[in-house]
Simulated assay, not measured.
Amino acid sequence: MSLGLGCAQLGNLYQERTDDECAAIVDAAWDAGIRYFDTAPHYGLGLSERRLGAALAARPRDAYTVSTKVGRLLEPADEGGDDLADGFAVPRTHRRVWDFSRDGVRRSIEESLRRLGLDRIDIALLHDPEHRPDAALRYGFPALAELRAEGVVGSIGAGSKDAGMLARIVAECAPDVVMVAGRYTLLEQPAAAELLPACAAAGVGVLAAGVFNSGLLAEDKPREGLPYEYGAAPSALLRRAAELAEACAAHGTTLPSAAIAFAARHPAVAAVVVGADSAGQVRRNAALFAAPPPDALWPDLAERGLL
């Protein structure tokens, strides 16, 4: 079981960050022993990949694992304005174009390698294949398999918040790994019904991302204004998060600690991938990962009807 750093924030997720701030986030992760880093072209129109590559450039290549994604090509576009409609505070110099074709996947990986400054990708994932399911399964996954055979990428699979789509990929494509985002968390566990058992049976590694549900579980005491699914958290979920936090406090732990530990407890989960807005948050998350809540918390949450 390992802890990974989600790198959407390196692409200015929600707000601008300097190159130095982003380098400090990666440095803090490295110092905390984190060696898995997840990014995507989608994150900041390529900015996340460029910044991650720069931050890792002086590290021994065999000492870390990088995953990135395919499915959205970045086409130059002089549209003006910013990309905040898609969540990133960057100039809108490119537009995203869905493309799971063989040529599109190969081009995407080639461009990611250039932005990252790497000669290979350790893990390549179909990104949100539910948006183009037929193309992703018929063309995208075989294209990744070709690249794996050529040694350009290592493990292959898919990343999505659609647990049903990921279960279909496990059944039809035999991936090495899947990344499930926000669907196996302390707050909600739809991936537990079909996806995780299928992965365990098939020997497919699960990368559990979005374990804070976009931020709702990231603080000790949930409050109005915290995000869920990249928007304001609905009041019903905010109340549920508050009940979870109260139960955690009764066991001498915190909501974010339990959120990380819950995902890590499932035997199919190979890594928990957590984002961070600052170097301090990275250090906090690493400390929480290293000191999980007491075992008595889990049956208590079940008795309270919170799991």
Rank of each mutant, 00 (worst) to 15 (best):
192 A>G: 02
140 G>C: 08
207 L>W: 09
234 P>S: 01
251 H>S: 00
202 A>G: 12
195 L>N: 03
37 F>E: 07
262 F>D: 01
21 E>I: 08
150 E>L: 08
265 R>K: 11
210 G>W: 08
129 P>Y: 11
290 A>M: 12
226 L>S: 00
27 D>G: 15
274 V>F: 10
104 G>D: 06
80 G>H: 06
76 P>K: 01
68 T>W: 04
290 A>E: 15
237 L>S: 09
70 V>G: 03
252 G>F: 03
18 T>R: 07
175 P>M: 06
301 L>E: 01
110 E>R: 14
155 S>N: 05
226 L>F: 00
131 H>G: 08
74 L>Y: 06
224 E>K: 08
204 V>G: 07
247 A>R: 04
258 A>W: 00
99 D>C: 06
82 D>N: 00
64 Y>P: 06
134 D>K: 14
219 E>A: 15
167 A>L: 14
48 S>Q: 05
113 L>Q: 03
59 R>P: 10
56 L>P: 03
51 R>E: 02
291 A>I: 11
278 S>H: 11
270 A>L: 13
283 R>H: 12
263 A>R: 03
301 L>P: 04
33 G>H: 12
5 L>T: 11
41 P>I: 08
26 V>I: 15
234 P>K: 04
205 G>Y: 12
226 L>G: 01
262 F>H: 07
31 D>W: 11
288 L>P: 11
153 V>W: 05
142 P>T: 07
152 V>I: 10
271 A>L: 11
173 C>F: 08
125 L>Y: 14
78 D>K: 06
147 L>V: 08
292 P>L: 12
231 G>A: 15
179 M>F: 05
61 R>M: 10
30 W>D: 13
224 E>R: 09
244 L>H: 01
21 E>R: 08
7 C>F: 11
219 E>H: 13
252 G>P: 05
169 I>N: 10
94 H>S: 13
183 R>C: 04
114 R>G: 03
220 D>N: 13
120 R>E: 04
266 H>T: 08
219 E>L: 11
105 V>M: 06
207 L>S: 06
34 I>E: 07
293 P>T: 11
136 A>N: 11
43 Y>S: 08
119 D>E: 09
73 L>V: 03
181 A>T: 10
232 A>P: 10
99 D>H: 01
104 G>M: 07
295 D>M: 10
150 E>I: 05
217 L>K: 13
286 A>E: 13
251 H>T: 00
119 D>C: 02
73 L>M: 02
31 D>G: 12
238 L>N: 06
83 D>S: 04
215 G>L: 14
191 A>Q: 02
9 Q>E: 15
41 P>A: 13
32 A>I: 12
122 D>H: 07
289 F>W: 15
155 S>A: 09
133 P>W: 13
52 L>E: 04
264 A>T: 04
108 S>R: 06
13 L>G: 09
125 L>F: 14
158 A>P: 04
306 L>P: 08
127 H>Q: 14
88 F>Q: 05
257 S>E: 13
260 I>E: 03
146 E>N: 04
192 A>L: 07
119 D>I: 02
252 G>I: 02
243 E>Q: 15
209 A>L: 11
